[in-house]
Amino acid sequence: MRRRTQQETGGDAAHPHLHELLVRDSCRRLKFLQRRPELRWADLTESQADALTATLAASDTPAPDATHAHELAVKLLDLLGPEDRLVVTMLDLEGWSVAEVRKATGWREGAIRIRAFRARRKLRKEILKLEKQR
């Protein structure tokens, strides 16, 4: 997303309307994607299951493999709506700050924080639900 906006808007903040247009376009495209209603342990590949096991392990154990963790994260993000998914992707996966997200989307900072909080809470619940099915 960040790379896409930098490529298509010249990498500066001189065209905020372009950022907002891009965000609207991304949300529209995400709406076309089939939103997965539920994710089960059986839906995970072996490598994704390993990544989830490593994620749920104690914090002093090695972190999960980046590629498989990314695949698992994308599968979990499929459970979210387009706006929630966009915010969490920008903040948690791509490292945007809230101010940058506000500038890109035109949404208020409070709304972004609340949306991110609720989306993370839902993702946490889904991960714990997966853990119970293991």
Partner: peptide, 8 residues
């Protein structure tokens, strides 16, 4: 766990 997964 989401934070740990997202970091990875």
């Amino acid at each position: 766990p989401w934070k740990r997964l997202a970091d990875a």
